[in-house]
Every structure is written in C-alpha cells, then in structure tokens.
Amino acid sequence: MQRIIKQLIFFAVLLIAWEGIVRAGGWTPDVMPKPTDVWQALVRGFADRTLIFDLAASFQRLFIGLLISLALGVGLGILLAKSKTADETLGSLILALQSVPSIVWLPLAIMWFGLNEKSVIFIVVLGGTLVMTINMRMGIKSVAPLYIRAAQTMGSRGIDLFVRVIFPAAIPYAVTGVRLAWAFAWRALMAAEILSTGPGLGYTLKYASDFGDMSLVIAVMILIGIIGSIVDYAFFQRVEKNVMRRWGLETN
C-alpha cells in the first residue's frame, strides 16, 4: 500500500511540475503541450474511437507476430539444444542476428511483402523469435542431470523423457523467453508501425506528428508506456515469479 501512495504522490508532483513549467515558459501546444492538453487529446481519441481502433489493430498484429515467434523460438531452441552441428552453425547466425535491431529489416520486408500488415508482422516475428530461441536453448541445456538420471531409472527414455522431464524442466527459462519476446516484439511493432502503415498506435503517432499535433503524440507515447508496463508487471512478472517458486528456483 505504501508503495502505491509513494507512486501516486510522485506522478502527481511530476504532472503539476510539467503543467507549471510549460505555463511559465509560455510554450504553445505544438511545441510542448501541457498535461491538460495531452489529457484532452486522449479523451478525444477515445471518444472518436481512433485510439480504440489503433489499440485493436496493434494488438492483433502483436498477437499474431508473437504467436509465430514463440512457436518458431521453441522449435529452433530445441533444435539448437539437441543438435551440436545446428548449434555451431545456425546458433552463431542467430546470435549475430540478435544484435541487429529487427526494424532494420523493414526496407527488405516492404520489398518482399509490400507496405502492409505482413511487413509489420514480419518485423514483430523477427523481434520475438531470436530471444525466445536463445532462452529455450538455454532452458533445455540447463536441465539438471539428476532429473534425467532419476527419470531413466524409472524407465523413461527418448521422446517420453523429453516430453515428461526435459521440456517441463525448461519451463522457467521458456517463461523468461516469452516475457522478453513480448518486450522485443512490442518495441519492434511500434517502430514498424511508425515507418509503415496503419491503423495502429505507431501509425497514429506519426500521423499526429505530420499534423503537428504534439498533444496526441505524447498521448500515444503514454499509452505505449502504460500498456508495456502493465503487461510486463501485472502479467509476466507475476507468472515468472510463480513459476520460479514452484520450480524451487527462487533466490530468497
């Protein structure tokens, strides 16, 4: 409870300071809007439903892209963990690609798929797949040998051993992978939407910027931040913590 109060006070002070400074400086809303302008832009956006459509469109792309990247990531991660040759060849490529921000693929994506939905989803998939692959591989590789030995003495081997012991033992890593994949995919999605086509939160941000509507720009930025942190804190961190506790991996 105390933490919430502290946070409320902090954000209240922040907003008041922002409002005060902009008023004192005398800037116009097309340079630096006040919190009240941003609030109005938000209300307007929700009232005429543009922001609602944007949210729906962005989430749809994110959902499709994330699902594809999780499926790919699990498959590739298992392949890299199980095949030494694949790990040494494909694995090094994936590590290298990991250091390339997925948005730089957009020019190619537009040439291949056109300036549309597919390009954006492609960028989202690239953003999520690599980090999921790396975590899944780690998860499979770090399964405690004791679990495997114990399962073997109980007659488990081959596929049965993998499905009933190795994969479930790797779940904590997989959960971290999903959380990171979501974070990467969300950022990739926003970048791709700004540079390509709408509807979507990123697209509205660029549209607002073209018309000099800085209130809406900041409104969208705040929406992006709020959604990102809600999904991360309220959902993923909670799931991750529960899994860690159940799997006996909690540090405290």
């Binding site: 030995r149 033992a169 159940r246 006996g248």
Partner: peptide, 10 residues
C-alpha cells in the same frame, strides 16, 4: 533413491 530427492517440481 539419490542423495537429493530428485522429485520433479512441476
């Protein structure tokens, strides 16, 4: 039976 119980936590 091992020194560690080796129960599956899931």
């Amino acid at each position: 039976v091992f020194q560690q119980a080796a129960l599956f936590p899931w």
